[in-house]
Design a protein around this nucleic acid. Structure first.
Lengths: 186, 186
DNA sequence: CTTTTGTACTCAAAAACTTGAATACAAAAA
DNA sequence: TTTTTGTATTCAAGTTTTTGAGTACAAAAG
């Protein structure tokens, strides 16, 4: 699984607390690329710590719960690098909206149309949100250091994904509406 | 989870044996949309049968193991329809190649470049394979019955997905190579 | 004539993920 | 001033998914 390596990848960029890692998985990167719950992240960090892939430093906070700042160890970096060097396999899409296509004939077309419209709006706003995340990188494209260039590419991937959904929704809505009209004139 | 409903969706199109359902998840639909192992499919079918969502008819085959042909029951159809009527949630991408972006700075750019090139070829051939699956539908687009129109839309979704990967790979390769050249002239 | 491929199904264990709850405290909003 | 939001972490149960092996037989390929 790659949750482990995704966490290591985050920590390879900068040390973070468990809470901060979890936030990345809930919002930024996770918002549309890789989701993981807080519990999953904390459990994984504990496991990685046991395996010596990460260490943490306890930061006492005045009038607050302590914070554990995790950083990647050299073992962790080696592990990560050897994972990075192996070929990746494409992931299946696993999308509920696709299943609707398989059984859409069981419900009135309007149900499908409304759902596609709802999803289209959602993906449009996700694309916009990602565009904003990317702005900073896209502006200085030529002077980006490698780390940031890669981050930009990852965000671009997510933007494309969302935009592709929007375009497919359009295409599909048109096709369905065309068919609905055809049938009513027959 | 939607594996259950995806199986019901298949059976709502036509009765199938467990083996055939598993094949759908390995190749056709599953090839790029939803993957599930044989074991998962058989287990799920058994559970659905217990719940009365599907029934099977044992077909004895001369000189072969018996075959169980599953069909959806009216309970199954009701279950499926009520699921179809609920809003769907977008799925996270969960792609290993995205994680590479987060930690790409740890390995030589050539490693990333080669991996992206490898993936690009893969997605190109997946797109072609899907195009072929779609040919039959795309040809008679105007005379398609609803069932087939929806199937066409699902395949289109998968084609777009694969093509989007190909385009992103291009975009990324160019950006990385540009940066590599910049740096070697400095 | 033997190996591979394809049909057809089952069992079991481990890893991963989801869901729900709980604890603890601070700062801002209502 | 009470509620909500945000920071920060942990435990537990249940479901899903992955991985690996095993049984059985037929037909085609080598």
């Amino acid at each position: 699984m790659a949750l482990k390596h995704t966490i290591l990848a985050f920590l390879s960029r900068q040390p973070l607390s468990g809470y901060e890692v979890a936030k990345e998985f809930a919002e930024g990167f996770g918002g549309c690329f890789w989701k993981a719950s807080q519990q999953q992240v904390y459990a994984e960090l504990a496991k990685l710590e046991q395996q010596g892939r990460v260490t943490y430093e306890v930061i006492p906070q005045p009038g607050r719960l302590d914070k554990k700042i995790y950083s990647i160890t050299s073992e962790g970096q080696e592990d990560l690098i050897s994972w990075l060097t192996q070929p990746t396999e494409p992931t299946a899409i696993r999308e509920d909206l696709g299943v609707i296509g398989l059984a859409g004939h069981l419900v009135p077309s309007q149900v499908v149309v409304l759902e596609i419209e709802r999803r289209q709006k959602l993906h449009r706003s996700m694309a916009q949100h990602l565009q904003k995340m990317d702005e900073h990188f896209a502006k200085n494209l030529d002077s980006l250091e490698l780390k940031d260039l890669y981050m930009h590419l990852v965000i671009r991937r997510a933007i494309r994904y969302q935009e592709d959904w929007v375009a497919w929704c359009n295409e599909s809505l048109e096709a369905i509406e065309r068919t609905m009209n055809d049938e009513s004139f027959e």
